[in-house]
Structure formats: structure tokens, C-alpha cells
Write a protein that binds this DNA or RNA. Structure first.
Length: 597
RNA sequence: GCCCCCUUAGCUCAGUAGGAUAGAGCACAGGAUUCCUAAUCCUGGUGCCAGAGGUUCGAAUCCUCUAGGGGGCACCA
């Protein structure tokens, strides 16, 4: 923010959002931002609109930890103290006075607006305003909760993309849970999202898998064959070998691997892919598209991409290999794309893949990778930069077209002791094993209560021990409980009040607990927005726990179904709204919302 | 050697774009149900925010350094 000179009038298009957004209500935070900005405008202060697309920049709105500090609060005056060279409390007081002097009913939502502490401005909602919001929530359902941040922008989220050389492990599960939740989240925020799994079905790894299966096949049929160095072992490899044996019999026994490699490779990786797909299905994660690496080669995209970059001067020959001049594009060194032996590197196809993604018309790309691939980011970004695709495109956002979210390692433990995991030796606990042992919902919840970039200790025994009082059940139980209240009442939560929401008398919802709950519901969009903006679904997870934690004590203390019909209706309406929000949140996280527990 | 991530209560983790008195769950102790589901509720306390400097009105949060843990530095994927 900067101070305007007295003579400069604020531009007419000052407010990025109108007070009542198309077809929707005002939301707590936006409304406050607008009011404060309007007050500031009168004081000659202009907001810096270049900072962000998503927020009315410069005015932060927060929910205070302590109830005595209001329902929502802004520290904006503290930040302005330096600019205006006045004490923050004075500025805050001026803002408050300006708001109170506004003619158009800006105060309608608020009971009090006060200056507190070093210069915070604390707002307290009027009860009637909260009741109105509750009615709106009931009428608008999810629409009340979703904020259209994406505005139809197309996003491609690529995640998991595990090599089809064996089953998924917990680390993949973490990526899957995150990618799934993030996709749901962005969809709710008005993005058009595609979920994609990139299949590494070309190259050395699948060949190695085919070779391993070939060895197991021969050995199984009585002709011992040396197991390839660095090959893949494990039950599944044996099983696949057995399947081939039962289909083809002894046809390939004693053959040269090179003569039947394609058959073994194709059968094996497709089989592994099926396993992967089934595991993801069991985990409740689906993809819109499975992109084959091989297709990139077969369609000439890889070659075409290299030629194009060569024409731009970013590809050169050296030492019998073909190089990408990535060092000029932000990477620390140049990268080989075709090896001396004429083989493409993995990077060659990945390069083509990312160019293709953009070519498909996406506004934004999100890749979810294991943190062990972080060193790979600069070279992929270099490709986009070379193609001129890495430009800023959207007004004041600084978002690059490609965002790589790194998911940190998962250490699998059992009673505090590390579980030995060796993929090549084939001894490890798969994602399926974990789902089977502790459940898909609990597993997802554990992943989604942590920031993706922190290391995760996943203790199987702790997860199971907890599972009777696992936080995920705490949230789901709140949902089930409300459902059960309506069962008892023999009505349906979503249709009960549809004709008469507006005529309900809600003024009896005036206990402290009830007002807390309603505020929590009404402020959901704030959490939602910050989750979207930061690409952090785990914020929803914590919100849901907090919401459940307002409901359970309330349920325990007060009866919903009473002798008093007016009171009962009001409380039922509130419960219906809690249920709507819980369901929305659970859905975003990819968790079930059980009607009964 | 260089680069990235992490270090917050006994344990597992949050901490919202620097803001007010640092929070949950678990574990531990005691208590609550003739009544809508006890997977619930109520009452108990714990912190040198790894350490040291710096930036400023104000730092768990930003910068530098140090220590510890993890990961990466291929003509592998």
C-alpha cells in the first residue's frame, strides 16, 4: 500500500469485487476487506492490486484465537503505521470512524467494530446477520461454501505416476491422497481439473521388469535363468511369470530374451499397471487420463520436440550425444537427451510430455512429485522456458504455469521400529496392505493432516491403536450423529425446511455454543479460500476437526429434539447446515461420509 | 563438497502471506449415559518454538551462520 497525495482520487474501478457477488451472498472476509478498503479510500490510501488476484490485496482478515478479540479481525492499521506515519491505533480509529459513518448499511452485519491491542480492528457479527447466513447456507448448499477462484481455468494435475514395475507403496499413497484432494478442492473452486497418471511404459525400467519376469518364467518352468542385475523381485513378479506360463506354456523356455522381450515387457507392465489401478481404486482415487510415455515416442512428439528446440538453438551435439542447453534456462548444467548409444534418456520424453501438456490448452500445470525428484525441477522448467511458455499470464498473479508440489518421504514404522522396505528384493508393505490393515479413510486422513513438505512417520501400530478414536472417525461420527437425529425425527435434513427456511424463527439459537457453531460454518469459505490459494488441502482437514469439536460438546449438552417446536426447528436447521459443511469437506478430502457408524 | 526439505509439549503434528496470551490429537489421572449413537462429553499441564546473531513497532514465521535428521547432485528412471 502507499499513501495517495490529497489530490489524487481513488480510481473508480477500485473494488475488485462488488459487495454482492453474482448470485451469491457476501462472505465474511470479502465484505470486511471491501469495507475497510472503502474506508481507506476515503482516507487517501490505495490498495496495491498487483499483489494477488485472489484477495483484495493489503487487507488481511483473520479469525482471532481468543473470543474476546472479536469474530474476525484485521491488523491492517498496524501495517499502515509506517506508511502514514501515524500511530496504528489512531489509524485504526480513523478507519472505524469512517466505517461507522458509511451511509449504505455497511454496519448492518456488525454488532461492534472496535480498536483493540496495538491497533487491531475487531468485528463482531450481529446475531441476525448470522441467522441470515445460516438460512443462505441451507438454501444454497455447497454453492455457499465454494468461492469461484478458478473461473473456469483449466488445470492439469499429474500425480502418482509410479513406474509400472511393481505395486504401490505408502509414499505413492501420500501423493495419491494429496493429488486427489487437491483436484477435488480446485474443482470446487471453479477450476476445470484433469487428473493424469503418466505411465513410464518405455525405457529401461519396464525392460528390466520384463527381463525379471522372463527369468522367473524360465526358472519356474525348470530352466534356471540368471536373474538380471538390479532386476525386480517379489511375489507379483513370480505371479506374472506364472500367468505367462499358463498362457503360453513352454513356448519361451530357453529362448533369447531379446527375441521375446516385447512380449514379456508388455504383458508384465500392463499387469503391474492393472495392479496399480486396482490399488488406487481401493484407495478411492481415479484418474481422467493415463498418459503413455510410449505414445509420445510413437507419435513422433519426442523427436518433434527435440527438433523444435534445436531450431531455437537450445539443442546441440557433443561427444556423440545430443544435449539440451538447459544451463541457459535456469538449470545448473546441460542435460543429455539422446545418449551416445542412440537411446533417448528419460528426460527426452518428459520434455515432450510437458510441452504436450501445454499444447493441450491447460492454463496451469501441477505436478506432484516425490521429494527425491526435486533436482529434476529446473530442467523441466527450462523446457517450458525455452518454449516461451513460462511467462506470467494472469494479471497480477505471479503464478508460473508449472507448479511442482513435492511430497516428502514416508517412513513406515511398526511400533516405532522402521519396516524394512526393498522394492527390488520384493519385500515391502504395499499401499494395499496398509489400506487393508487400517482402512482407506484413516490412511488418507493421516496423509491429509500433515503438510506435504514435512517428513511423515507412518506408524502402522499407532494408526491401528488409534483407530477406535482416530480423528477421522471423530469427524465422520459428527456427520453420522446428525443423520441419526433426522432419522429419529423421521425427516430429511435437506428437504425438511426447503419451503420455510425464511420463516423459521432462529432467535432461540442464542447460546454461546450455538453462535460459535454458526460462526464456524459461516467462516468456512475463508478456510476454503486459503486452502485453494496455497494448494493445501490439509487446511480443510483441520477445519473439519474444529467444526466437529464444536458440535460434539454441543450435542452432549443440549437436546436437538425438544418439546418446543420452534426451538427444535431452529436446532435442526443448524444441524442440517453442519452436515452440509461436513459432507462438503469430507468429499473434498476424498473421505466417506457415513450415514451410520 | 554443492543444492533442497525438516527441527514447535513425553509422542504424532497444526500454527492461516511477520501480529494480540503458541494450539490440537494421542498418552496419563479423575469424572459423566433412566434422555436424539459413549467412535461422545467434562476437569486436570506441559514449551529456551534446535542454538546464535540480524531485519522492525512486533519473529515459531523473513535473512545469515551453527548443530542434528532426511533427500538429491547420471549419457538411471
Amino acid at each position: 500500500m502507499r499513501a495517495l497525495s490529497e489530490k489524487e482520487a481513488p480510481p473508480p474501478s477500485f473494488f475488485p469485487f462488488s459487495s454482492i457477488r453474482a448470485g451469491k451472498t457476501k462472505e465474511g472476509d470479502f465484505m470486511i476487506k471491501e469495507i475497510v478498503l472503502k474506508a481507506l479510500a476515503g482516507m487517501g490510501v490505495e490498495a496495491d492490486c498487483s499483489a494477488s488476484l485472489l484477495t483484495v490485496a493489503g487487507v488481511e482478515v483473520e479469525i482471532p484465537k481468543v473470543q474476546t478479540q472479536g469474530d474476525v479481525s484485521t491488523p491492517v492499521a498496524l501495517g499502515l503505521a509506517g506508511v502514514l506515519r501515524k500511530p496504528p491505533r489512531t489509524i485504526a480509529q480513523e478507519i472505524v470512524s469512517a466505517i461507522k459513518a458509511m451511509p449504505q448499511g455497511e454496519m448492518a452485519a456488525f454488532d461492534t467494530i472496535e480498536v483493540a491491542g496495538p491497533g487491531f480492528i475487531n468485528f463482531r457479527f450481529k446475531k441476525d446477520y448470522l441467522y441470515e447466513q445460516l438460512r443462505l447456507l441451507y438454501k444454497q448448499r455447497e454453492l455457499y461454501l465454494r468461492v469461484d477462484v478458478g473461473r473456469g481455468r483449466r488445470v492439469l494435475i499429474e500425480f502418482v505416476s509410479a513406474n509400472p514395475t511393481g505395486p504401490l507403496h505408502v509414499g505413492h499413497g501420500r501423493g495419491a491422497a494429496l493429488g486427489n484432494a487437491l483436484s477435488n478442492l480446485l474443482q470446487c473452486a471453479g477450476y476445470v481439473v484433469d487428473r493424469e497418471f503418466y505411465i513410464n511404459d518405455a525405457g529401461r525400467q519396464v525392460r528390466l521388469l520384463g527381463h525379471s519376469v522372463f527369468a522367473a518364467y524360465n526358472t519356474l518352468l525348470g530352466t534356471p535363468y540368471p536373474f538380471p542385475e538390479e532386476g525386480y523381485r517379489g511375489e507379483l513378479v513370480e505371479q506374472v511369470a506364472g500367468e505367462i506360463a499358463s498362457i503360453d506354456g513352454k513356448r519361451y523356455v530357453g529362448a533369447e530374451f531379446d527375441n521375446c522381450a516385447q512380449h514379456f515387457i508388455d504383458y508384465s507392465y500392463k499387469r503391474m499397471l492393472k495392479e496399480i489401478e486396482e490399488a488406487l481404486e481401493a484407495f478411492g482415487v481415479r484418474f481422467d487420463n493415463w498418459q503413455s510415455e510410449r505414445v509420445l515416442f510413437d507419435s513422433g512428439m519426442v523427436k518433434g520436440g527435440i527438433d523444435r528446440l534445436r531450431n531455437m538453438g537450445y539443442v546441440y551435439d557433443k561427444d556423440g550425444a545430443v544435449w539440451f542447453k538447459s544451463s541457459e534456462l535456469g538449470d545448473e548444467k546441460d542435460r543429455v537427451i539422446i545418449k551416445q548409444d542412440g537411446q533417448y534418456t528419460y528426460f527426452a520424453s518428459d520434455m515432450a510430455y510437458h510441452v504436450m501438456k501445454i499444447g493441450r490448452g491447460y492454463d496451469e500445470l501441477i505436478n506432484i512429485w516425490g521429494a527425491d525428484h526435486h533436482g529434476y525441477i529446473p530442467r523441466v522448467k527450462a523446457v517450458l522456458r525455452a518454449e516461451g511458455l513460462q511467462e506470467l499470464r494472469y494479471g497480477c498473479t505471479s503464478d508460473k504455469r508449472l507448479t511442482v508440489l513435492l511430497v516428502q518421504m514416508v517412513s513406515l514404522l511398526r511400533d516405532g521400529k522402521p519396516v524394512q522396505m526393498s522394492k527390488r528384493a520384493g519385500e515391502f508393505i504395499t499401499l494395499r496392505d496398509v489400506i487393508e490393515e487400517i482402512g482407506a479413510d484413516t490412511t488418507k486422513f493421516i496423509f491429509l493432516t500433515r503438510r506435504p513438505d514435512s517428513h511423515l512417520e507412518f506408524d502402522m501400530e499407532a494408526a491401528k491403536r488409534q483407530s477406535s478414536d482416530n480423528p477421522v472417525f471423530y469427524v465422520q461420527y459428527a456427520y453420522a450423529r446428525i443423520n441419526s437425529i433426522f432419522k429419529k425425527h423421521q425427516t430429511d435434513a435437506l428437504s425438511l425446511f426447503i419451503e420455510r427456511v425464511d420463516s423459521l424463527d432462529l432467535s432461540c439459537l442464542d447460546t454461546d455454543e450455538e453462535l460459535q457453531i454458526i460462526k464456524k460454518l459461516v467462516l468456512y469459505p475463508m478456510t476454503f479460500q486459503s486452502a485453494v490459494k496455497n494448494r493445501e488441502p490439509h487446511r480443510i482437514t483441520f477445519y473439519l476437526q474444529e467444526l466437529a469439536a464444536t458440535f460434539h460438546p454441543y450435542y452432549n449438552k443440549h437436546r436437538i429434539l425438544t418439546e418446543d417446536n420452534t426451538l427444535t426447528d431452529a436446532r435442526l436447521l443448524m444441524c442440517a447446515c453442519i452436515s452440509i459443511v461436513l459432507k462438503e469437506g469430507l468429499r473434498i478430502l476424498g473421505l466417506s461420509a457415513p450415514e451410520w457408524m
